[in-house]
Amino acid sequence: MEIKPKVDIINPAYQSSKGRLFAGTSGVLKTSASKNAWAQLVNPLHSNVNLYVSFFALTNFSSKLVTADLVVNADPPGTPTLSSDVSVLKLASHNKPVGQILFNPNVSGSFSGGRIVGTRALGPERTELGFRVDGRLIIEPGTNAMVFLCSRSAATSQIEFEWFESEEIF
């Protein structure tokens, strides 16, 4: 009897092969005792796709501790900036993401509404996975996931999101 090889392909690799896997970063986020910052992955209301978050990563460039809350469906303070640092991960693909990374690098106040689903303490001069959710965090049209940052002293951070987009639920 002939044994045939079996190959397991992880879902992000499959989604990337279809040109549906995207990654991007916020701009530089600056927090202090009186200022906060945030980055948000948003699915526009009439997009007709779901965003399946693979992971998000937190980078703390400073020597101070930064606290990060993962918040779903919140309204952040301040005026958002649209990140231009987003790309499809199948490099020859011309697909454009529907999902948007919005951020505000330095705001007063906190978010309203929404729900905190996790909190992380990010040590100095580190990059860490915030949560590895492997597509289990589904951002449907008109919803969002936000990382809200604060610190007790001046700190500089950045947030990275990776997600794939599909009309189907698996």
Score class of each variant (00 low, 15 high):
Ile139Thr: 04
Ala23Thr: 14
Ser63Phe: 07
Phe103Cys: 03
Ala39Asp: 01
Asn60Pro: 02
Pro77Val: 01
Pro124Met: 10
Leu89Cys: 02
Gln40Asn: 05
Thr127Gln: 07
Asn60His: 09
Asp85Thr: 12
Ile138Asn: 12
Leu137Glu: 13
Gly123Gln: 15
Tyr52Lys: 05
Leu89Ser: 02
Glu165Ser: 02
Leu29His: 14
Asn144Gln: 12
Val28Lys: 12
Thr59Tyr: 12
Ser26Tyr: 04
Asp75Cys: 05
Asn50Phe: 14
Ala37Gly: 09
Phe148His: 00
Ile101Trp: 03
Ala68Ile: 07
Phe148Tyr: 01
Pro44Lys: 09
Gly27His: 11
Tyr52Thr: 09
Val147Lys: 00
Ser108Ile: 13
Leu102Ala: 04
Ser63Pro: 03
Phe61Asn: 06
Pro12Ser: 06
Ala154His: 04
Val7Ala: 07
Ala154Leu: 14
Leu91Gln: 13
Thr31Glu: 08
Val98Asp: 13
Ile10Ser: 09
Ile10Met: 11
Asn104Val: 02
Leu41Met: 11
Ala121Asn: 15
Leu70Glu: 13
Leu45Thr: 13
Ala33Trp: 13
Arg120His: 06
Glu162Asp: 06
Ala39Val: 01
Thr156Trp: 09
Tyr52Cys: 08
Tyr14Lys: 06
Gly27Ser: 09
Ile116Tyr: 08
Ile10Leu: 11
Glu162Thr: 14
Lys96Gln: 10
Ser166Pro: 04
Leu137Thr: 10
Thr119Gly: 02
Asn43Trp: 00
Glu125Gly: 12
Thr79His: 01
Leu41Lys: 05
Gln158Glu: 13
Tyr52Phe: 05
Ala74Lys: 00
Leu58Met: 03
Ile139Val: 15
Leu102Trp: 15
Ala39Lys: 06
Leu58Tyr: 05
Arg115Thr: 15
Ala74Thr: 05
Gln100Tyr: 04
Glu125Lys: 14
Leu89Thr: 02
Phe164Asn: 07
Ala23Asn: 05
Ser153Arg: 03
Asp75Leu: 15
Gln15Ile: 06
Pro77Tyr: 02
Ile159Cys: 03
Thr31Arg: 00
Leu91Cys: 01
Asn43Glu: 14
Met146Ser: 10
Asp85Phe: 13
Ala121Tyr: 12
Val117Leu: 14
Ile116Val: 08
Ile139Phe: 06
Lys96Thr: 10
Pro12Trp: 01
Ala74Gly: 07
Gln15Gly: 05
Asp134Phe: 12
Leu122Phe: 03
Asn43Arg: 04
Leu45Arg: 15
Leu51Thr: 08
Leu102Lys: 07
Glu162Ile: 03
Lys90Leu: 09
Phe170Trp: 02
Leu82Gly: 08
Lys4Ile: 13
Phe61Thr: 10
Lys90Tyr: 07
Asp69Ala: 05
Asn95Gly: 12
Ser157Asp: 11
Ser47Phe: 05
Ser153Ile: 12
Ser157Leu: 04
Asn43Ser: 15
Ser93Glu: 05
Leu21Ile: 06
Ala74Ser: 11
Tyr52Asp: 11
Trp163Gln: 00
Gly27Thr: 00
Pro77Glu: 01
Val133Met: 09
Val98Cys: 01
Ser62Trp: 01
Leu58Gly: 01
Lys6Cys: 11
Thr79Trp: 01
Ala23Lys: 11
His46Cys: 04
Val66Ile: 12
Glu125Leu: 15
Ser54Gln: 14
Val28Phe: 13
Val88Leu: 02
Trp38Tyr: 11
Val66Arg: 08
Leu82Val: 14
Ile3Gln: 15
Met1Gln: 14
Ser16Glu: 11
Phe55Trp: 05
Leu102Tyr: 11
